[in-house]
Simulated scan of single mutants.
Amino acid sequence: MASHRRPKQPNRTRVTVLTATAAAAVALTSQAAQAEPKPSKEEVKAKVDKLYEEAEHATEKYNGAKEKQEKLQKQVSNLQDSVARGQDELNKLRDTLGTMATAQYRTGGMDPSLQLFLSSDPDSYLAKASALDQLSSKQTEALRKIQSKQRALAQQREEASDKLKDLEDTRKELGEKKKKIQGKLAEAQRLLNTLTAQERQELAEEEERANRASAERVDLGSSPSASSRAAAALNAAATKVGSPYVWGATGPNSFDCSGLTSWAYSQAGVSLPRTSQAQANAGTRLSQSELAPGDLVIFYSDLHHVGLYAGNGQVLHAPKPGANVRYESINNMPFMFGVRV
């Protein structure tokens, strides 16, 4: 017998709720889009410049860790060479003592104390120093030399082990700082990619104008440098106007900020520390009114940027990623103090 039940009707209340929810979601999305308008070219540039500043700060930290790594690597190599030479000397001393023992055996037997020393565990003998008076003076002197060399080698091996651990920690630190720098630069590029092609071109042209203005004749005044080395450093840096900023670079074809200043002073025969923070303590501090051409100029409260005072209120520096070595007003950045090397 056929069923006379009516077909099940859809749940109109549920459909209505779902429809209302979907409509609300669309409305919220629309409101969010209206509440967060696309940032302007100027806003993007400000954010990118901030990221470049943070990347430069991280770069100086990276430079410091890299300098430490290089020093540790040199210390470890020297210690390892010293240990190798010391082991050779110790082996020769032991061979000499063995020759004495052989000669003694051939002439009538070996002293028990000497036998103990030449056993499979010779180091245990060193704790029995009282036995030295049982040997000849020549053998005693040989044993004392061996004892002294063993102690020195043990100390050098321990020092080398500690340095190797420091070196491994520093390498890990370098990797972390490199990753941080690359992250900042990648984020800056992501922001630039949100601009239209025309806006990116306009920003590139602004940067190029700044580079060209520096390459043209800049009025640096006629103030003399405080020393011949400062003048030589500034003259060397001036030959690098137009070279690109590259983080971690020390020349001769690209530079970061402290890479340029350390390279310039090296051309004048002066060795500067690698980082801007360390260069801030490389000489006598100066106020802005005391600056002379060739003096170092330190910027920002954390001292993460350095340049060379060029005269007439101008600083010669490697500014940031995407920019070239150039002259700019000293007032473009927060001045902290100058340093006369």
Rank of each mutant, 00 (worst) to 15 (best):
K8P: 14
N11C: 10
T16V: 13
L18P: 04
T21V: 14
A23W: 05
A24N: 08
A24C: 11
A25L: 12
A25F: 08
A27L: 06
A32C: 00
S40N: 02
E43G: 01
V44T: 09
V44M: 07
L51K: 13
E60I: 01
E60S: 03
K68Y: 10
V76E: 14
N78M: 11
A84T: 14
Q87N: 02
D88K: 02
K92L: 12
T96E: 06
L97N: 02
L97V: 08
G98T: 07
T99G: 14
T99P: 04
A101F: 01
A103E: 15
L114H: 02
Q115I: 00
L116A: 06
S119W: 01
S120W: 03
D123A: 06
Y125V: 00
L126C: 06
A127H: 04
S130C: 08
S136W: 05
E141P: 03
L143F: 14
K145P: 05
K149C: 07
E158D: 15
A160G: 07
S161G: 10
E168L: 13
T170Y: 08
T170L: 08
K172C: 07
L174A: 04
L174V: 09
G175Y: 11
E176G: 04
K180S: 12
K180F: 10
Q182A: 02
R190L: 11
T194I: 09
L195V: 05
R212Y: 07
A213S: 14
E216V: 03
G221P: 07
S222M: 05
S223L: 05
S225W: 12
A230C: 11
A233C: 04
Y245W: 05
T250V: 09
G251Y: 05
N253L: 08
G259Q: 03
L260I: 07
S262T: 09
A268G: 10
S271R: 15
R274E: 10
R274W: 13
T275Q: 10
L286V: 06
L296D: 01
Y300C: 02
H304F: 00
H304L: 00
L308R: 01
L308M: 02
H317P: 08
P319G: 05
P321F: 06
I330Q: 03
N331M: 11
G338K: 10
R340L: 06
V341E: 14
